[in-house]
Every structure is written in C-alpha cells, then in structure tokens.
Design a protein around this nucleic acid. Structure first.
Lengths: 133, 133
DNA sequence: CCGGGACGGTATAGATTCTATACCGGTATC
DNA sequence: GATACCGGTATAGAATCTATACCGTCCCGG
C-alpha cells in the first residue's frame, strides 16, 4: 500500500496537522521544552517576545493535539507545568532540525537579502520586483 | 566560540529566518519543488487550496531570501519556472522531515483530539477547557 | 492593616495576514 | 469573432496575531 496521507491535498487531515506545526509559536515551544518541563512564566521568559495570549492559545492547541501535557499542582502561588508528551517528543526531532537550520543559515539569507536589495534600486529603470518582507 | 544565533532571543536575526520558514505555505512550496523546477500554474495545481495571491507572495519572499530562483523564458503564453536554489535544497532536508512527520502522525493526533473532545462535554459540569481549533 | 509582588492567565482593541473571487493583457486556437 | 492558457493583480472581507492592561488568590514585609 502507498502513502495514506498527502499534505498536498486540500482536504487531507495531514493539512490540519501541518497547519498546527507551522503555527507561529509551535516550533519555539517544542524547542523550549527540549530540556524538560517548564512553567508558564518560565516559557514566557525563555521565548522572548511571545505574549501571554499567544502562549496560552498555542499551549492549549498543542494540548488538544496531544503534543504537550499540562499538570496543575494545587499550591499558592499557582504551579502549572507543561511538558512534551511522547508524541511531542517525536516532533522535537524534525523541529530541532528546522531551528538549527535557521540558526546556521542566517548569514546566507542575509547575503541573499542584501543582494536582492542591491538589485532593487540600482541605476533605476528596470529594477526587478522583489518582495521585501 | 559558542552559538552565534539563538531563535529564543526576540531580536536575533534567526527569528526573521524562522518566521519565513514557518510562513503558511513555505513548507508546501519547498516540498513541491523537490522533484525539480515547476511553473506557476503547476505549483498552484499541485498545492491544492493555495490562492494565486498567496503563491505569488510566498514565492517572491522566498526569492528575496535566496531559497528559490525565478526564470522567465520569453514566450507566449508566458513561461516562468521556479526552482530551489542550493540554499533552498538544504532547507528541503528538514522540511521534508516535517512533512513526513505530519503525514505519518495523523492517526495519533486524531486520537488525541477525539480524546480531548470526549473530555470536553462529558457528564457536564467540570469540563476541562481545551481549545478546539 | 496595608501595600506589593508572584503566578497563571483574560480582555479589549488595533494591526497584520490570509482567503475568496474577480479580473487583466497578450497570444493562439477554434 | 469567441474562447482558453499563462502568470499573475485588485479588492474586500475574514481570520489571526500583537500590545497593553488588568484580574484573583495567596503570601510576605513593614
């Protein structure tokens, strides 16, 4: 038998899965939980720039998908721990690779962007149209 | 020397790189170009559900970052080919893994979602709050 | 007694991004 | 003519993300 799922099909369930993985903050959370469970505030501090709303929503979604577990220990102040599940840990392997690719290819991308910028407004006239992010 | 870049830092350039990789359609385009260059219309047909606007914007952005090349052959009707660059091909390795993870873990995720749904409105009363996407 | 801080979030509003749908110019074909 | 192909744009509306402020509960110091 061949492949059961194909992300290229618009209605394939793997689409929703890939959509979740590709959500803005999933990569960060999975990588942050690489070294063991973390509390909400720790995650927020570790992943610089994430807002509490984004963090809550992404964690809830990942919990819904069985990627992270949420453990609330009754105490005061409240104590909540987030950890990768087995499924989440299996996702760590590919997502760590993505993270490492991003961290190791910054110079290449910056060079490409500079080259595109230089081509953009040269002697003026026939500047190629390149989207600047 | 240690790591030069760290995606967890809000202002690190690797953030913008990861942001581009994580953009909605990048994974699809990179995987679609796995088997060689493709034309605009081919890509649109292959990646079911993408709108021409989204395809154009993602391709332009990827071109700006040096991930794909755009080759226009003067002809009529117009003939434009998109291909992965060397840099883009190096990204293919991690992104193919992500795609394969998505395709092979659909049942796990669906099981997790069903479990969460079942827990959501059980005997009514103390239903845990889980985000449904 | 009163203020303040830690924790784990919500609420609201505004900016950004994505989607759906229609349309364009130029040519070749019917 | 009329229609279709190619590689896109244009426009409007929906969905999503961000920034910022705030909340309840408890404990601690003064």
């Amino acid at each position: 038998m061949g492949k059961a799922y194909n992300v290229m099909a618009a209605t394939c369930p793997s689409r929703t899965v890939l959509h979740r993985i590709g959500a803005r903050w999933t990569v960060f959370i999975v990588n942050a939980l690489d070294n063991g469970p973390m509390r909400f505030t720790e995650l927020k501090a570790r992943i610089r720039g994430i807002t509490p709303k984004a963090l809550t929503e992404t964690l809830r979604a990942m919990e819904y998908d069985g990627l992270v577990s949420r453990t609330e220990t009754p105490a005061n102040p409240p104590h909540v721990e987030y950890a990768l599940t087995g499924l989440g840990r299996s996702l760590l392997t590919p997502l760590r690779a993505v993270r490492e690719w991003a961290e190791s290819h910054v110079p290449d991308i910056e060079r490409a962007r500079a080259r595109a910028d230089a081509l953009r407004e040269p002697a003026s006239g026939d500047a190629p149209i390149l989207a600047r992010p």
